[in-house]
Design a protein around this nucleic acid. Structure first.
Lengths: 242, 242
DNA sequence: CGCTGCCTTGACACGCCTCAACGAGCGTGG
DNA sequence: CCACGCTCGTTGAGGCGTGTCAAGGCAGCG
């Protein structure tokens, strides 16, 4: 129960007690990744699969001119490289600028799940398809939303995703990143992120202080950001459909 | 052999003659989708899986203010909605502004592949993971590249992808889209796309006339766009690794 | 022949970027 | 315990890339 992976997968598939026990067992041996350390780098062919258990990690890419684009945030319950074996090698890097707790799962374990636990495997595919949906959503924000709404949208997404795994309460969550990280996520300059943030705070939409984001009126922020969580495909627990 | 799906999957997995025959058979009954018709719309739970066989389609989303963001181009050999069953419902729309040829594959056929043709199924997952990689690449371009290089990068990608399935020659391909479509893809205004295009032509990098894009010097364009096709994960045919 | 859709051009406005400087907080070493 | 040097956040000034509005040209087609 205390396991963010299980808490998340429950939204994507029906898991039996046996399934949960298997997942619980897999996540037992966690290890700490220090700040500014990469978990996997571009070009690697990792043997083990990495899963974030606590803290934040991110997918990113650095261009020849030194610019960095962050392409995804990995929060507790998210896999880093579940399916690289199929692709061959990593086409981007995963790092943590803020330290995080992960587990390394041997590829053999995944193969075993594949053979004997189809329900779990389906849940894992659900998770990677949701990642893809999230990516599409980021692309839409990037292409069409102005800086303030883009940022607001990101905050809404993080709130919901963190709530799902029990790392956010109704209107706030811990957020250890810097404004520079957000700049590289939104494709903006640091200066502009700073000003946008002030504007959002001025409208009482987002309050970010002491590594914690607080949202005075969640509904208002969601309207402002035009946030619709459908792309996260969080089936209601108890939803009967396939 | 004449089948773009097979031509593409060959880059992602080793297929036996039997596998190819199965795929060949699946793609037999094509149908025509007229211009400006949607193939699947947001919220749908399609029974059949749709595969593009000829022409272009695209994934897109329309925001409340009417803006449209195109999130992917689907070219021959690309699936529209292979795995929606796992997600539940579509979180975006797929349409063709230009007409295309597709096949509808009954879900039962996919289930059958899943049970009896693991090699094919793995190849299909490879294709969806490549789609995800492409999405990440688009996000990087969107966030970090200026308009001209962004556009150049897109053209490089399309050249390579279309070559893969036999729909482009060494330095040109048919391209029926309008500048407005490109604008919605790159997140730019039509006017700016037009001016950027003129500039690229001025530098003799891209020549777009009569619904055909021609690239005078492919290598130069790739350098200009900082294009690295690794994210497409096109294993060399004959590559021995797993 | 006259639509209509698409491309093109010019003028102007604005969002966001860059450069540059300064301040606040914090860990470290003297 | 203070001084120092980080990193991070904040502010101002000016410039550029891109958007908007508006108008006209051209080709395709009924």
């Amino acid at each position: 129960m205390s396991n963010p992976l299980i808490r998340k997968l429950v939204y994507g598939a029906h898991l039996t007690d046996d399934d949960r026990a298997v997942l619980e067992k897999i996540c037992r041996k966690t290890q700490w990744v220090p700040s500014n350390k990469d978990i996997i780098t571009e070009g690697e062919r990792p043997d083990n699969v990495h899963l974030v258990i606590d803290g934040f990690a991110c997918r990113y890419k650095i261009l020849p001119d030194g610019k960095r684009q962050i392409m995804a945030f990995l929060v507790p319950g998210d896999f880093c490289d579940l399916h690289v074996a199929i692709l061959g090698e990593m086409d981007h890097t995963i790092g943590t600028g803020w330290g995080c707790q992960i587990v390394e799962i041997p590829r053999a374990t995944i193969d075993e799940l594949n053979q004997n636990h189809p329900r779990i495997m389906r849940a894992l595919w659900w998770a990677t398809l949701v990642d893809e949906g999230t990516l599409r959503s980021w692309l839409v924000s990037m292409g069409q939303r102005p800086a303030d709404r883009h940022m607001a949208h990101l905050v809404c997404e993080l709130l919901v995703r963190l709530q799902t795994v029990g790392y956010a309460d109704a209107d706030s969550f811990e957020f250890p990143l810097s404004q520079a990280d957000i700049a590289d996520t939104l494709g903006l300059s640091i200066v502009h992120v700073n000003r946008t943030l002030q504007e959002l705070r001025g409208q009482n939409l987002i309050n970010w202080k002491h590594k914690r984001i607080h949202i005075p009126d969640v509904k208002r922020l969601k309207v402002f950001a035009d946030f619709d969580p459908k792309y996260l495909h969080l089936r209601q627990r108890g939803d009967a459909s396939s």
